[in-house]
Amino acid sequence: MHRRPRILVPLALAGVLLTATACGESGSSGTGGGSGGGGSASGEACVPVAGDQLVVLEDDQQLQNADNIVPAVNAATAQASPALLPALDAVSAALTTEDLIELNAAVDVDRQSAEEVATAWVEESGVTDGLEQGSGAIAVGGANFTESTVLANIYANVLTAAGFDASVREVGNRELYLPALISGSEIQVFPEYLSTATEFLNRQVNGADAEPVASGDAQATATALQPLAEQNGLLFGEPSEAADQNAFAVTQEFADGLGVSTLSELADACGDGSLVLGGPAECPDRPFCQPGLEDTYGLTFGEFRELDAGGPLTKAALQQGEISIGLVFSSDGALAQG
């Protein structure tokens, strides 16, 4: 899913940008409608409304898998250091999606360093109060993108406060770092994503065509994850409320105009086929995207615009009123209020 190597992204983006820019010029006519009249099925009710502030519509039917932040720990290390998992669970308990959005925004928009941002959050949240004390060297892995780096630094700070000699080790993609976590020789802790990790292990244990066990229910997914983790010599902590998963965003103006805050409400308000959906090229074919929105929520779309996977093109298209609703990631720094 979305936490994989992003090396090819620069290449892919060049192409996407060209197409998307061209689209934007030729088809940007849908802006004249203004805010629709509170759900009247006039055929113009849900045309895009420009606005700077983006808000996520709640996925009230749990179409998306729960990708909550969850600490992944090498099982042998966790057994040898009983203080390790409680310290990481303290982070899970304190971290919220709003926090995650602000942490990402501090790095991606305000250009603070991931270390500073992590230190400030740990101090502010007070998670280090009254932690059980442990000892020994712990290497926390972090992938090469903002959120993972910040979370790895938060884990390392908290573990240091809990008496461990913690350090952050930069890693590459999941296919490589998860085996390293399982062996435990190079890294022992990693800030994972619940459903993504669950399905990764599920495919490793039960083969590439394994029946998916992750779902939109975080607790059910965590329960399904435990046996898979045990078979691989891993231990997962408590999933946090904070999640980075696929989400659908609209502009604040659009949401206020229609008075909607969930996808179900949007489906009720927008039955006239005037919605313009924006997302990655594969969106019309993938169950979590257009087909899922249509089947699970009964949404109907007048048009689909091919943009990127929660990237700057989708966000810019939303803000400029070229699409009504677009696929984003729930912890994106661009969702920060203000």
Partner: peptide, 17 residues
């Protein structure tokens, strides 16, 4: 999971973009 492949978090602004 709803797999979207790699998650691009970048954007390059070219002229007129």
């Amino acid at each position: 999971m709803a797999s979207l492949g790699a998650r691009p978090v970048l954007g390059a602004a070219s002229d007129g973009a």
